[in-house]
Structures are given as C-alpha cells and as structure tokens.
Design a protein around this nucleic acid. Structure first.
Ligand SMILES: [Mn+2]
Ligand SMILES: [Mn+2]
Ligand SMILES: [Zn+2]
Ligand SMILES: [Zn+2]
Lengths: 147, 147
DNA sequence: TTGAAATTGAAAACCACTTTCAAAAAGACC
DNA sequence: GGTCTTTTTGAAAGTGGTTTTCAATTTCAA
C-alpha cells in the first residue's frame, strides 16, 4: 500500500514556493493530517481537533485558510452535502460521486461511466458546455436499515 | 395554456383548513405570486420583493414561513444549488434534475430515465435503500459561451 | 542579520436563515 | 353583528457556519 503523503506535501511546497507563499509549522501539521491515509471526507472541526493534539495552539482560522488554499491549489475538494458544514477531501486521480446514508452519515464513493456519458448527451442537447456536476444519492445503508 | 394558480390556491386553502391554520391576506399575496406562471426557481428575497409591490408591509419572516409551509404541504421544493441562498420552486407532477449556467444562472430542467435506473442499480449494489438524490450539471449556456 | 511580505490567533463581522415575542388578525361560536 | 381563543404577523434578536480584520509573529530572500 503506497503511503503517498510525502508526495502531497512536496507538491504543496512547490505550489507555495511558486506563489510567493510561505511554508509554516502549522501548514505542515495540517496538510500532513489531511493527507494521511485513510482517504476521508473531513469536517473542518475534525481536522482542527486532530491537529491540536499535535500543536494545541493551532487556530480554527488557520485550518480554514489552509484547506481553502488546498482547494485553490487543486489538491482538495470542498463538498456541500446537505445543508450543514462542508466536507473536505483530498483530490484524487479520478472523478467519483457519492452515496450517503441519511442516518449514520456513512459515505460510499462510486463511479459510473454510463451516467457520465449520458450527462454529456443531456448537456449537449441543451447547448451547454459542461464544467462540473454534482450527483449525490441519499438513503439508508445496510446497517441502518436493520435498526 | 392552463393557468393553474387557482387550483394551487384552493389546494393550499384545503391544507390550511384541515390543519387548524388560518388564511391571511399575506398568504394570499405570497402564494398567488409563487404559483403564477411561468414556473420558476425563486430566491426568497425575489418573492419578497414581488409581494411588496402588492403589499409593502409584508415581512421577510412571513414569506419565509409561508414558503416553509408550502414545502411541508408538499406543494414546493426547496433546492440548495451551490452554497448561497436556497431556491424554491412549485412542486410539479414529475421528478426532474437541473442544468445550471455558472455565468448567468439560467436553469434548465431535464429528465432522464436511464440515469434514474442506473442510480437504482448503484444503490442496490452497495446495499443502500434510496430515499432521494441530487443531480446538478453546471456549465455555460449557449448564450454565455458566445460572450 | 535584516527587513519586507506573508502568516498567525483571537475576535469581530458576515450571511442566510430561524426563532422569539408582543400586538394584530382570523374565525368559531354565539 | 360581538366575544374569545388561537393563529399569524413584523421587528428584532439569535444561530451556526463560515469569512474577514488586525496587531503581533514568523518566514525567508537578500
Ligand atoms: Mn469523495
Ligand atoms: Mn426545477
Ligand atoms: Zn447508515
Ligand atoms: Zn448562461
């Protein structure tokens, strides 16, 4: 199992250098946590809590700003499931959509090429040029159905 | 072209009567505006503004409460496109998804049975029980591509 | 080592709702 | 009609998740 955290950190350092930004101890803690396996969808507060175990003085604002920076660098996605807090996830190599349990919050990722193709057809039929899409399926996971 | 506003108003009056609620002049103004053709996706502020042309004293809170009531009565949907304000639309007979121009905000509705069927398959494969879904395609409409 | 520029934590501001509350309106029953 | 209980209203305050401000601190190129 590849442990790709160092790659991600190096990639961000390159981004930071090329944009006149600065590498700080706080950013190091935050991005190392964020890119540590397993791949997950994190609430900001969740990352903040983890980071504070390593550096108790890290602020909400710094975690917020760092995650936004990752999104701007193309290294993270900010998702808005439902209407509560947004979730951040490391951006990976391939696109995927989400299946979300409305009871326990479990998130399953899936990919379906047929749906993607049909989307393209729908868009073309209406004369649009597609930039991105959002597809979320909400329901009860197997566990929650039994309760 | 059928002008179905009176039906909707009558339907809401029946709902109101059967729930021990009261019909008011404000509710009359608001629902008549909301159900007046053409079918649209409205921001709350947009409806408020229209209603105030008819009754300048109508408040934000009353429009808000009336729209929520319509949603609870099953006569409107509240949509959360992007991250800003939510949009309300009269609920119609059949399900549809949305194609949204990121430049001018134009919204096109579409329906695709194949996508709906594949969604069911994806859900079943992961052992979920689907309750609802969200599918939005974002891009540039024909007009905005020319600019 | 210096110093301009970026970053930080704390706190305030922002924004889209959502709720509270006292006064007004609705409508069921005379 | 009038009476009375309940619901609704507008104004204002409260909420929650972000987003910005600002003075002090840190980074890092020179
Ligand atoms: Mn994901
Ligand atoms: Mn619609
Ligand atoms: Zn579940
Ligand atoms: Zn457009």
């Amino acid at each position: 199992m590849p442990h790709r955290k160092p790659d991600k950190v190096a990639q961000l350092q390159k981004y930071i250098a090329s944009h006149g930004l600065k590498w700080t101890s706080q950013r190091s803690v935050i991005v190392n946590r964020f890119f540590a396996p397993p791949h997950r969808h994190y609430r900001l507060e969740e990352i903040l809590e983890k980071c504070r175990r390593e550096d108790a003085s890290i602020s909400y604002a710094t975690v917020y700003r760092t995650l936004i920076m990752l999104v701007e660098a193309g290294m993270a996605y900010q998702r808005h499931f439902g209407k509560g807090q947004s979730l951040f996830e490391p951006s990976g190599s391939h696109h995927h959509d989400h299946l979300i349990c409305t009871d326990c919050g479990a998130i399953v990722e899936f990919e379906n090429q047929t749906i993607e193709k049909i989307q393209e057809m729908v868009v073309k039929k209406h004369g649009f040029k597609l930039t991105h899409h959002k597809m979320e399926l909400y329901g009860l996971c197997a566990k929650c159905q039994k309760k």
